[in-house]
């Protein structure tokens, strides 16, 4: 079981949380201009990397708030937790992952 640091509540068991999938998928600015394959890419296609993955989580059985997490999908190591709207810590440091 993962031990997750909610940005508001601190460390809690994974069973209190819900994973919301890949983060930083932006809703298209001009939906009318999108082709069908572009819609498919937005709605369905996912990066699904083996390694570092940025994803959304919700503290469902706690404060109920959403946040972002960067986690390694091969090791389950949690790299960082950051709030909605914030840039990933790696990007702020000028690193790329």
């Amino acid at each position: 079981m993962l031990l997750i640091s909610c940005p508001w509540c601190g460390q809690r068991d994974e069973s209190e949380f819900t994973c919301g999938g890949e983060a930083h998928i932006l809703r298209p600015a001009d939906p009318d201009a999108l082709s069908d394959p572009e819609w498919a890419d937005y709605l369905f296609m996912r990066t699904n990397p083996k390694g570092r993955h940025r994803e959304r989580w919700c503290h469902t059985h706690g404060c109920g708030r959403w946040f972002n997490m960067e986690r390694d999908t091969a090791t389950h190591d949690i790299v960082s937790v950051y709030r909605m709207g914030e840039a990933p810590p790696d990007d702020r440091d000028g690193n790329s992952s």
């Binding site: 993962l2 994974e14 069973s15 890949e22």
Partner: peptide
């Protein structure tokens, strides 16, 4: 399990 993984293991709950 609810999260993406390649680790061939999951969580206890």
């Amino acid at each position: 399990d609810g999260y993406n993984s390649y680790a061939q293991r999951g969580s206890f709950q």
